[in-house]
Design a protein around this nucleic acid. Structure first.
Lengths: 99, 99
DNA sequence: CATCTATTTCGATGTATGTCGAACCATTCG
DNA sequence: CGAATGGTTCGACATACATCGAAATAGATG
């Protein structure tokens, strides 16, 4: 069975690869990424992290994830909608797996 | 074709997972890991990094990789033989891929 | 407009970490 | 034994970075 896979192959630059590695290295950031991934799409204000860390810090983490190319941010009204860039993430995993 | 795959499945603790993430996040450390992986097994003193960074720093990185469970160190005579722990690495990639 | 909510930006702060030199330990070899 | 080789350990140092509070921005809403 072919579970609606990626259409295109993506190649990451070395810079993006290390940016992603660093982005994933912080547990809090990884937890955020997981929530977004699990939800498919979610508003920033729905993140569990609001119980734990300040809005400023959350915003910072989102920015890191976004600049690494892992997360797409779409402002909609007053909130920010987050979505994982699957193609980029899969490209990262693939490259990592090839060691 | 079944390319001599891993015998057992390994489950990583959360701590080990983040330790590996952090270990991979430094480009220098990742480069070292790649060399070891490419060689299958290699003496520490053969690492290209000796051209770039001090023995002390290399030793530090090896230690990090080892403590994360990614690299096995076996002292043989005066040199240290390095080998990638494939099972651990593959467990990491698998868990990462499942997001 | 005034206010509330969601988010960002800025500056400050404490901690983590990559790096080094120097000293040290272990092994090999003359 | 004494020197050379390969690694490690130990501070020290500089930079990176997670975090915060406060102030700013932007949209919704009364």
């Amino acid at each position: 069975m072919k579970t609606k896979g990626p259409r295109k192959k993506i190649t990451l630059t070395d810079e993006q690869f290390t940016a992603i590695s660093r982005a994933l290295a912080d547990p809090r950031r990884y937890a955020i990424l997981r929530q977004i991934a699990a939800a498919g799409e979610m508003a920033c204000c729905r993140l569990e992290e609001h119980e734990v860390i300040s809005p400023a810090t959350i915003s910072h983490h989102i920015k890191e994830l976004n600049e690494a190319g892992l997360v797409e941010v779409e402002r909609e009204g007053r909130e920010a909608n987050l979505r994982v860039c699957r193609l980029v993430f899969e490209a990262y995993v693939a490259r990592l797996a090839s060691l």
